[in-house]
Amino acid sequence: MININSQIITPDVLIQKYTLNSTEQKIVNILSASDHTYKYASEDQLLFELYLRNSIINASVALYKSNFSFKVFRHSVCNTDFWRRTNEGGFLLKSSVNPSDAIKDIYINSSLYGTECATAMVIVYYKALVDVLPEKVFNKLFSEIYLMNWQHLDRDIGIMDYRYVHDYLPGDGRYFKNPDVNPLTPEWQGENVFDLGDGIYYGHGLGVGRANKFIQGLNENRIPGSTKSAYLMDSAKRPNFKHLAQMAQQLE
């Protein structure tokens, strides 16, 4: 159920704000139907989370549809007008450019970029935030961006990997693990994905599809003779929506 400022909220009022079968409606329905109480200090706080989750999904789909390619870190590529490729294969924002322009460029000049799924996840988060936050706020909050993996995601995004969650929600980050990966292709030791809702996921490298698509894709990259299948882990990654909502409000 949804609790806003200590009051239980029925989904009807919230649902009316969104178009039928929209991501936001689906999320409200999941939250309302849950045994767990999802607490928000204000309606705006909840609306911001719905807005950002929807933006994560849109950024995922847009990246999937772009010409952004899959390359292992050792051979990753980027547009050097905006980014400096580091020795470990990450992309470091150049100090002379606007962070928001640099993030947008990945989608505009997508064919100039290629890397692994962990960086793609990070890119999706930043793009989702570019689309949600006023440009001024985004550039102030994220003046130094390093696109690599979870270790380098900006602290203000407040990403957390929750071992157990009450409900999986569209916009959650999930992970398919491949415990018996072929040693010659360690890049397939797992696939980071976003939950797009309705049982569909996006993962850079394997694309968009249901869980079995990812499991099958990873299983094809197992050590020969393995009988241990890839699987979807229970954990879910979520940014600190409440903190981001607060920061957006404060900086605006």
Binding site: A118, N149, W150, Q151, D161, K177, S235, K237
Partner: peptide, 10 residues
């Protein structure tokens, strides 16, 4: 346990 850097923040 088998967690790795590309998989999770911590």
């Amino acid at each position: 346990h088998g967690d790795h850097f590309h998989q999770t923040p911590k």
